[in-house]
Structure formats: structure tokens, C-alpha cells
């Protein structure tokens, strides 16, 4: 797992989470900046998947490769599903609330991914 890539992902997800909090508190809908941030985060997740699979052999020897790849693949689906779920809720603030939940979930999953990588599975 490439460290700069993981940091980029964490920064993007944190930015997305903070922006989602801002929009939810203000009662606003999903807007373009959020869409771009979401797409950037999703792109980073896809790149992470490719690098993750390619370099899974370099991880701590205690790491379960299957579990690591299951996490990587799982990460890919969270934002698209959440986006789909959020789009139907455009009259209220809770559409962005859905994305906030998804982003926080992703941050936890990335943290777990790092734990796995370092052998604290």
C-alpha cells in the first residue's frame, strides 16, 4: 500500500466529511463542489484498490490477503450507493447527511485497512 496515496485518500475523505457537515448544518443540497470531491475520493479509492492488490504481497505477513482485498473492494461501493441513496432526498438536509454517514464509514474502513496492512488485523 502506497503511503502518499493513502494520505491523499484520507485528506480527500476528511474534506468531504467536513464539507458534508457544513452542507447538512446549513440544510443545503448536494452541490457541484461536493460532487467533484466525491468523484476525486472515488478515483483515489479505485487507484488504491489497484495498488493494494498489486502490492498485497509486501504487507505484514500476518495480514489476511483475502480480507484486505475484501475491504478494498467494499470501499469502492460505499460512495456510489450512498450517492444514489442521497439523490432521492433533495428536499431536505438529510441528503448530504447520508453522504456524511458514508464518508465517516469510509474513514473508519480506511483506518481498518491500515491496521490490516500493519498486521494488527
Amino acid at each position: 500500500m502506497l503511503a502518499p496515496l493513502t494520505y491523499t485518500l484520507v485528506v480527500l475523505l476528511s474534506a468531504l466529511a467536513l464539507y458534508a457537515i457544513y452542507l447538512t448544518v446549513r440544510g443545503r443540497q448536494i452541490d457541484n463542489p461536493m460532487l467533484y470531491l466525491g468523484c476525486a475520493a472515488e478515483a483515489a479509492i479505485v487507484i488504491q484498490l489497484i495498488f493494494g492488490i498489486a502490492t498485497a504481497g509486501n504487507a505484514d505477513s500476518h495480514m489476511s490477503k483475502a480480507l484486505f482485498i475484501a475491504y478494498l473492494v467494499g470501499l469502492i461501493f460505499v460512495l456510489p450507493v450512498a450517492g444514489f441513496w442521497a439523490v432521492a432526498e433533495r428536499e431536505s438536509r438529510w441528503g448530504t447527511g447520508v453522504l456524511l454517514v458514508a464518508t465517516l464509514g469510509l474513514l473508519v474502513m480506511v483506518a481498518r485497512l491500515l491496521q490490516l496492512w500493519n498486521g494488527h488485523g
Partner: peptide, 16 residues
């Protein structure tokens, strides 16, 4: 709908 949509997102995450 409304707040329920976010609540379901949390439930979905925990289901996963």
C-alpha cells in the same frame, strides 16, 4: 425520507 434516509444509511453501514 428526511432524517430517516440518513438513519437508514447508518443502518446500512452497520448491516455491512
Amino acid at each position: 425520507s428526511g432524517f430517516g434516509r440518513m438513519l437508514i444509511a447508518v443502518y446500512g453501514l452497520f448491516a455491512l
